[in-house]
Design a protein around this nucleic acid. Structure first.
Lengths: 341, 341
DNA sequence: TGGGGCGGGAAAACCGGTTCAGTGATGGGA
DNA sequence: TCCCATCACTGAACCGGTTTTCCCGCCCCA
């Protein structure tokens, strides 16, 4: 039985009052007597009434939804736990509020822009979350142009005033380097994610800084793109070249695992001859052998905080920059003392 | 400049016609002259008008959104590539249509039911996708009771008439078993996902059938729950017990990888002394060493087909059961000839 | 010259709520 | 006793579209 959904008019008719009165009663606003209110609530309950979110949005001007576009190729996306954890955190913050999450995944940054633009033009979202900020990111221009509320997940760029949720990655980079140095490593290579991401640059800058401060002249950065293939290629090249590093630090977990395979192929023992550190921790890191030492970031917390901030802004709060709890290095079996050669 | 979004009234005023005429013009319907239509379209273009999806839904009765609730603990969710691939396929089918995806993740099946119920009551979705069907699944009752259009991703249960998108898992089970038998394996253990899932039961039944047909008296099934811990526990027990199997077949990739670690711990060489087969293939399987032989299912295709079917039903098509392309076994390095002992 | 048909468009109802401006009844205070 | 507040509630406008109804003017044909 498909039974049409009841409307406030149905309730009004049944209760013998106007729809206005019903609206007041159902929203717990003054204007109706206590007895009438109870009668109306009871009828609404009996009829199984729920407010049409569409109709409410039309008057309220709020869509009661926030949007997130994830722009990564499906292949990478599937494997990287990052986004699912993020979404999971987002949901926590959204749970039993009236707000829903609109999700789009794409592998085309033009489509990403178009999605945000369309959502806004059609009034489908009240605001959006932006992840993986790039330098000169066109999305920043877009949200400014549209006046669309947005929260950035990532480093606070000094120049712009967008609210954001950020994690102190720099401190973590330093922690990792100090840890490796304490283990005796001097030749350390950072295998970075795509350079166009702001967070990649932040970490790279922090890496270079810390390396200089620690006097690591042979520390260096090689670019990759988060994919297992690129990581394998880069790792192979780095390990077989002259003056091979004794420690590698990766920008995500997938690349680190890929490198583990390469090391095994090349007969390089981990952690005896080579130490590996992954960035985002996930159960993948615990799954492989040796288990990977990794930097654990509060990913779900980031998602939840971002939504919280966005909702706050939507209800009139002022934009601000929120810092999450700090990342921590979780040492496992893929890191060990450097063997002098 | 937040600039209010233009409405058809703005266009009507500017063009000196009624809003009705504007509506006809913008929707390419007869009722306005060609010249007026062009004028209106030009004004709309200039004003940057886009239809309010909310207002349209109110009249059209369509929300232009479909809902998906994923009910898995965040820990498992993050690692399993399945859902992201599914979502990616869903998006492909949704791309540049007017329909959006509402996503909810939860780890509580009561919350899942509540989400579907609320989405429907509030008119936020036109229909939903159901994944991970259980026996006696309360969602089936719910969608029937609500008259909410739904498409099931999974086996077609004979008794009910819900449209579904299914993949011939049974054939794949047979293929895997025959493959292992051809390699000389006789003692084969299937490490299954949660028993309450219909697809687990289907595969288990197919496994038992095929094993009998092939005369494998020592083939058996042990239950697990998709998590790496459970898989590790089960694998350890199975491998250290008497009459240890020479081949293990897992219901997902995470469990297979976990087992790989356990085998390594126990000093059991893969594939020399133990063969492993994962179910859903993903780049995780290629990442680990030895790379895992796996059954590759057309996951994204499933998602796309499900959305296609749902949209078809929403526009009046009759429910039907769609079969995707067949899964295929991708042999890699984790399977090899059985060593007689 | 008058009637019928048709095309272009205006006007208004409608979708399901919210909200504002009234209105009649009641009560309290002077 | 009169007047003003207050309360409880109604009617109507409104949000931004869609759709139905209706009307006007034109052309065609008898």
């Amino acid at each position: 039985m498909a039974g049409k959904r009841p409307t406030i008019s149905d309730i009004a008719r049944e209760a013998g009052v106007s729809t206005g009165a019903v609206s007041y009663a159902l929203n717990n606003r003054p204007g109706v007597s206590e007895s009438t209110r109870r009668r109306i609530l009871e009828i609404a309950e009996r009829l199984g009434w729920a407010p049409s979110s569409v109709a409410r949005s039309l008057t309220g001007g709020r869509a009661n939804a926030v949007g997130l576009v994830v722009d990564r190729p499906a292949r990478v996306l599937g494997v990287e736990p990052y986004f699912m954890q993020l979404i999971s955190g987002i949901q926590d913050a959204l749970a039993d509020g009236p707000t829903a999450l609109l999700l789009q995944v794409t592998d085309d940054s033009a489509a990403e822009l178009a999605a945000y633009r369309r959502w806004w033009a059609e009034g489908r979202v009240d605001g959006v979350l932006l992840v993986d900020l790039r330098t000169e990111d066109p999305r920043l221009t877009l949200v400014r142009e549209l006046g669309m509320p947005a929260v950035v997940l990532g480093e606070p760029a000094a120049q712009d005033e967008l609210p954001c949720v950020w994690t102190d990655d720099e401190a973590a980079v330093v922690e990792v380097l100090e840890y490796l140095v304490a283990l005796g490593h001097r030749r350390i290579v950072r295998v970075a994610g795509p350079e166009e991401f702001v967070h990649t640059q932040t970490r790279s800058a922090a890496f270079t800084d810390a390396a200089r401060r620690l006097g690591l002249e042979e520390a260096r950065i090689v670019p990759a793109d988060y994919s297992d293939e690129a990581a394998a290629r880069v790792t192979r090249r780095v390990l077989t070249g002259g003056r091979a590093p004794t420690a590698l630090v990766f920008d995500n977990d997938v690349m680190a695992i890929s490198a583990l395979g390469v090391a095994q192929e090349l007969g390089i023992a981990v952690p005896e001859r080579l130490s590996l550190v992954a960035w985002d921790d996930s159960s993948l890191c615990e799954l492989v052998r040796p288990a990977l030492s990794a930097v654990r970031r509060p990913i779900a917390e980031r998602g939840a905080a971002a939504v919280g901030l966005l909702l706050e802004i939507l209800s009139g709060g002022s934009p601000r920059k929120v810092k999450t709890s700090d990342p921590e290095l979780v040492p496992r079996s893929s890191t060990g003392p450097a063997t002098p050669r």
